[in-house]
Amino acid sequence: MQRSIILPVATRFLMPLMLVFSIFLLLRGHNEVGGGFVGGLVAASALMLYAISTSPSALWRLLPLDPRFIAGIGLLISLFSGFIPLFYEKPFMTGIWIETPLPVLGKIGTPTLFDLGVYVLVIGVVVWILLEFAEDE
């Protein structure tokens, strides 16, 4: 089957844009519409777009890590963010904030880290599941 040239070319521009957009969604999620779930889903869509326009194995090569690891790391980040307050003798998952806002990132604290974990996990899980399906064909 002859592959269309439009999709791969478009993907080359779209995918990085979507990935940047997903990070944007993640970062502003605490104050504006967005967040880890949406960000992760958008990023996963971007990656799947790439997989569909080229091939699943191309996505495998593109990913720095096995999506299984990505999902696991996301879960660990979220879990870890919950443990940070314990070092300050506060209950599990209490929000701890760095008082001075950082440039670009804004105020960050353990909930930001938690959201990052959600973001990473959603990417990992969705890409993992869809790749399993894609390769099952």
Partner: peptide, 20 residues
């Protein structure tokens, strides 16, 4: 609802595999 939507996606995926 937000989490329900995301979870329903994974449940769908799982159900599809199960059926398959």
């Amino acid at each position: 609802i937000l989490t329900a939507i995301v979870i329903s996606f994974s449940v769908t995926a799982f159900a599809v595999v199960l059926i398959r």
